[in-house]
Design a protein around this nucleic acid. Structure first.
Lengths: 151, 151
DNA sequence: CTAGAACCTCAACTATTGTTGAGGTCAATC
DNA sequence: GATTGACCTCAACAATAGTTGAGGTTCTAG
């Protein structure tokens, strides 16, 4: 049977140390609705232990380059009051994995485009402008869109 | 032989339209040493046509997530006064491709780690803490480093 | 030569993701 | 019961990557 210790909520210091996220960042996440905490009679924060996982999700998502706004949206899909189940987290992970896949695909696409250009030192990617002498010499007309890959 | 038109330097409006980068952003890049311009007698900017390629490099690098500081460093390796040759750009592209490769590899690594965790809904990546019941119940001790993948 | 579009500078503002410090309170230990 | 470390709020500051606006100048076409 679990001891009392294992159910005790976390102080901000504990959460900070265990998650590797500074207390000020935790405050910030709270202000922005990414995490939440109970308060003691003396107004100090007490975090449910699953907040640890929530913070892990935040950190990991940030590593992929997602803005906090998006991360919050994802977290909003978790159940409100109760501790999320494995299934809940699993759904989130899957969603997040898709993001990852997309980002990887986008970078690979970019790299493939680049490969065709390294030989000529060109950087226009979509259509190598160096292979088009009129650009080097200064062709007028549609130039902008060539560099803007579709979002 | 090339007409005069093809050698004429670009106004900021032209560079902006052709590159898809706003004039204010071009001002900003100049303040930060990423691009430069000659001036007319009346103090208006005139860009060498190869600035177009420079801006393309900036935009593309940003797409990969590189900060302007790094991009400037890369650009600093270009020859100073003269128009860069294809070879110059080629070197830069190669360097940038390595960055891309690294980023792709990092994301793939992250995804592979995640794959092992989706089944259990865990997010600790390196070592699935959900597979470790002591964490769900709140094991004390080293928790932080597990989520911090090496930079 | 004059109107209007395009350009100039400089300062202030935006958003994101936090950090730092001041001034004060809480909680656990001696 | 006093000390001390951990915690609280609030405001200001930081870096990045720009945008916006005011107020004034230049360039170009008619």
């Amino acid at each position: 049977m679990p001891s009392v210790e294992t159910h005790r909520p976390l102080t901000i210091g504990e959460l900070s140390e265990r998650s590797g996220v500074s207390a000020s960042a935790l405050h910030f996440y709270e202000r922005n609705g990414l995490i939440e905490a109970e308060r003691t009679a003396g107004n100090q924060r007490r975090y449910r232990r699953d907040t640890l996982r929530r913070v892990a999700f935040i950190k990991t998502s940030q590593r992929v380059g997602l803005p906090l706004k998006d991360i919050r949206e994802a977290l909003d899909s978790l159940p409100d009051g109760r501790t999320p189940t494995k299934r809940d987290w699993s759904k989130l992970s899957l969603r997040w994995r898709k993001e990852l896949d997309e980002r990887i695909a986008a970078l690979q696409h970019l790299r493939n485009d680049l490969d065709g250009c390294i030989g000529c030192g060109c950087l226009s990617l979509k259509s190598c402008t160096l292979q088009n002498p009129s650009d080097e010499l200064g062709a007028s007309g549609a130039g902008a869109q060539r560099w803007t890959l579709p979002e």
